[in-house]
Design a binder for these strands. Structure first.
Lengths: 135, 135
DNA sequence: ATACTTGCAAATCGTTTGCAATACC
DNA sequence: GGTATTGCAAACGATTTGCAAGTAT
């Protein structure tokens, strides 16, 4: 569990003013302890039903700012479905086709034995493994 | 190189009438020999600049029909960027951030040593590896 | 006081769809 | 001729943006 002052500090460290909206969204994202995967719509819904007045546009902006600041990571699984993941460490995902949900796979559960060298003049930024599963 | 009658046959086998538009798009996709990665916009541009009269909506419909017929595979790399891959075999991708291009990685260049079991009641459909690279 | 944020509504982007006109068998 | 396909334009869903009003430092 993360205290609200810890969230304030985190925002300050990222150069973002701790506004009411950012604090509320930050608490939803980082306050629960467990890693989360959310879309902008989902997070907006949570904020609103919790009583926080915030517009969807601000949720989008905030998620993008958090991502730029390295507090979140984008995960792309389906067209028209952009998730933001609070787990910014090394890990992969299960993607459940049908319900369109994402589940973390801890990095130590997947090991990639061989990878090709990056094409000439390019460097590897990240390797994403998505295991598509179906019920 | 694939002859136009071979494309006609392929369309017929998929239950699709070999119309002028589908033949032209099929020739662009499958006629060149090498595997291709295209977006609908790109393919439409190619068709138009080659003199084929075809609407963007038809390109979208055709790509979806080809995919449903197993002639193409969808690859998702970035939000708002759906690629269609003529290589339907087992393989992975380099995604070049910045230019937003895709490169195939042959299946035998990647080996995944360990994978977690699928969550209870689910079966693994496919494992996608995307190696994000940057110049 | 000043610069940064927010909210709204409009704009944009990629993609899909309804429907009348057209092409294929 | 009858059904599948096309093109257009409108509809769509997700995301971004311009700008005036509000808020943090």
């Amino acid at each position: 569990m993360m205290s609200s002052s810890a969230i304030t500090d985190r925002l300050r460290a990222a150069g973002l003013r701790p506004t009411r909206q950012r604090l509320a969204l930050g608490a939803l994202l980082f306050g629960g302890g467990a890693d989360r995967h959310v879309t902008a719509e989902e997070l907006h819904g949570e904020a609103v039903s919790q009583g926080t007045r915030v517009s969807l546009a601000t949720v989008y902006n905030t998620l993008n700012q958090f991502t730029a600041a390295g507090l979140l990571r984008e995960v792309m699984v389906g067209p028209g479905r952009l998730y933001f993941d609070t787990n910014i460490g090394d890990h992969h995902h299960f993607y459940v086709e049908g319900d369109g949900t994402l589940l973390d796979i801890p990095a130590d559960k997947v090991s990639i034995a061989r990878l090709p060298a990056a094409p000439a003049g390019m460097s590897v930024e990240r390797v994403d493994v998505v295991v598509r599963v179906r019920r």
